[in-house]
Design a protein around this nucleic acid. Sequence first.
RNA 1: GGGCUCGUAGUCUAGCGGUUAUGACGUCGCCCUGACACGGCGAAGGUCCCCGGUUCGAAUCCGGGCGAGCCCA
Length: 851
Amino acid sequence: MEKEYKAIEIEEKWLKQWDEKMYYFDWNSKKPHYIIDTPPPYPTGSFHIGHALNWCIIDFIARYKRMNGYEVMFPQGWDCHGLPTEVKVEEKYGIRKNEIDREKFRELCVRFTEENIKKMRSTAKRLGFSIDWSKEYITMYPEYYVKTQLSFLRMFKNNSIYRGYHPVVICPRCETTIALAEIEYKKGKTKLNFIKFSDEVVIATTRPELIPACVALAVNPEDQRYSNLIGKKVKVPISEKEVEIIPDEAVDPSFGTGIVMICTFGDRQDVKWWKKHRLEMRVVINRDGTLNELAGKYRGLKIAEAREKIIEDFKKEGRLLKQVDIEHSVGVCWRCKTPVEIFPAEQWFVRVDKEKVLEMAQKIKWVPDFMFERLRTWVESMEWDWVISRQRVFATPIPVWYCKKCGKTMVAEEEWLPVDPTKDKPKKRCDCGGDEFEGEKDVLDTWMDSSITPLAIVNWPNTKEFPVSLRPQGHDIIRTWAFYTILRSMELMNEIPWREIVINGIVFGEDGRKMSKSIGNVISPEEVFEKYGADALRQWAASGVIGEDLIFSWREVVASSRFQQKLWSVARFALMHIGNGKADNLRIADKWIISKLNKLIAFVRDAMERYRFDEALKAIRGFVWYDFADNYIELVKGRLYSRKEAESAKFTLEYVLDRVLRLLAPITPFITEEIWSKFRSGSIHMQSYPEVEKEFVDENAERAGEEMKEIISAIRKLKHDKGLALNAPLKKVIIFTTLELDPLDLGFATNSEVEITKEMPMVREEITKIKPKFAIIGPSLKDKAKQVLKIVESLSKEEKEKLLSEGLEINLNGEKIALKPDWFDFEVKRIVEGLEAEKIDTKSSVVFVSC
RNA sequence: GGGCUCGUAGUCUAGCGGUUAUGACGUCGCCCUGACACGGCGAAGGUCCCCGGUUCGAAUCCGGGCGAGCCCA
């Protein structure tokens, strides 16, 4: 073995050597199934570090479950449809989607997406994920979207999809409906205009261009200033329309004048009021963002122009009383940042039964559990159903036509799928006899594709099993992906989609801020694995606490890479010595490390079950570095080099290395495979995860081993203090102890003759400190504890000794209290006469060293 | 404005009712000892954000501030 671990070289070697079939899922396997509903990323072309974190977590789980005897399905999907790709393709070819043939445009999007998937796939492969590539799905292909369309038909039949007239949010620039989830909120400055409607009525608005859309005014019913106005009518400027002044608790009396105008529609509050008070609808803004004939002389102007013109006119008329600058948050289109508008429109909707969704969601195990709260508050605050239609091209077509003769909606039959109603025709006549149809041009929201992923991977509608085991995802999409999937699974299967959902955090840049190109704090997975390899990146990913956001850290990556070098060196040492080891004559140090290893296995298993990869990895690293390398190996070098009692050490080295590698394999698949291949056959990833072997847990050996460690450390320190080299020989070491220590190993470790004696005839013990055990004393003495401890401190030497040997009765304000020895820890100094040597006291031994 | 999360050595972080608060990186000594100098041995470094409360006992639980982040209105 080479001295240095060359991560990149070795990782690339294994990528070539590994057989992908190793990770194929077999429906017929008799092992228990473990199916993971992996997130299908949006194919932007770069598999970023946030994906990497998420996939590392999935891979840790997949590999761990596989080693525990599960038949694991780790599929990989790509969620292709959507506006961003349309925009990119428009940019790339300098075209507009509405100006070219739909089919042609779609084709360009497909090709563009395929290229992006290719790039992302290669990054995912390089990171060593144990993905079953035979189960890859791509939502833009008919094999997948036929399922999306089928789900539409089934839900339409269920009456959970309907077409309705409803206010929807529109981006005037993109001229498309957008979901609530796609609105961003931006803070900015705007002017609040105080406008006189009549002598008594002055309103304040940031959007004077909507005055012609005003259908009512509202005041707070508690507001004394305006109680006389309630029920009265007032004339609206521009439209000259008479509107009523109504009371509503939602009006903030301290904002503006305390009188608010209700328009159809300025914002979502307007929609609420409009519904609640059953107001009429006056739409003055067109979908392209210009004003219509209801705006009178402002007709044809754009929103911003109209605003300016109206203010100018009002100034002249004396209607504008004042203008105030305010901080204001506006909803904007997530794509182009244009302020959104609310319009009534014919759209397709999925009905949302809030209570039922929450009831379902509660049956799922949420990790961490508080993440359920995010879903709950979101669902409870939802104000209207899910709008699933989009005015786009690159998406799953809605399988519906409208009869040209009678206008009736014709929904496709299941056997006709997949269909594109803009080019395919229905295979039957309309009930009215008509055979001329208009195909639905609107397409489905991308979430309609991705919210059936758990169904798609189990072969729905010929479902092989359901629900699946696990959904891993980020907390940023709980309100979208998780929510929609639960909703759809409920409607289509009347069942939860997965038994468990594990939520991971999002990745921040090293400066603690969200990674973004404009800030310049973006780190790509490529940068990391090109320098330190995938295993190091994976260890960084394991360092985060599940559910919490994780800051990217080069330091952590470097520390991980150093650990790999340490592991490599340890293996190199072990492999130089192993072979013909024997377990029949284990010495204290061997039993000690094996016992500690078995405790480590128990700990790591428990941590892995809780998805606390940080705890698992930290424990393994600590064990390898400090217990195994620094202590055990140092301790047995003497036996190995001298060939005295070496077989037990050889056995132990092999036993420990074997298990440590298997413990680490899910997290660092490359280095563990490489080392494994040097002394075992078959891939480590096809082995079982280490089990605790109870017969090897030995408390006495652990106590003795720890004591040996402490003695060696104390002697090292003594040499250090005396300016001696650590391997300097000593004349003699005498250890008084009641523990079973190993003079052979201790002798090698200290480079001196070691004598161990259980008799301490000349030793006198003196108590130097009494430390109360609060965990025992507190509950039994309660509020008396403090006073009692004060008395204990002031006891005489003899009394303290009595307390140590048999316990002591003390008197507290006339009350007799019996103190027991096991209530305290005693620190004891042992004084020995007649020996000329440096004396060291450890926990349970006294050591004399003659230099 | 609401929901959720976080605030612990110079930096990042563990712990989330009980002796001396964990680890990593960094810093400072000493050491190239036959696995590893990407190493070893040793050391220094903390008002556990602030204020109140509960308790025999609080970094940990509760209340109130202040600050940060994410999601949403």
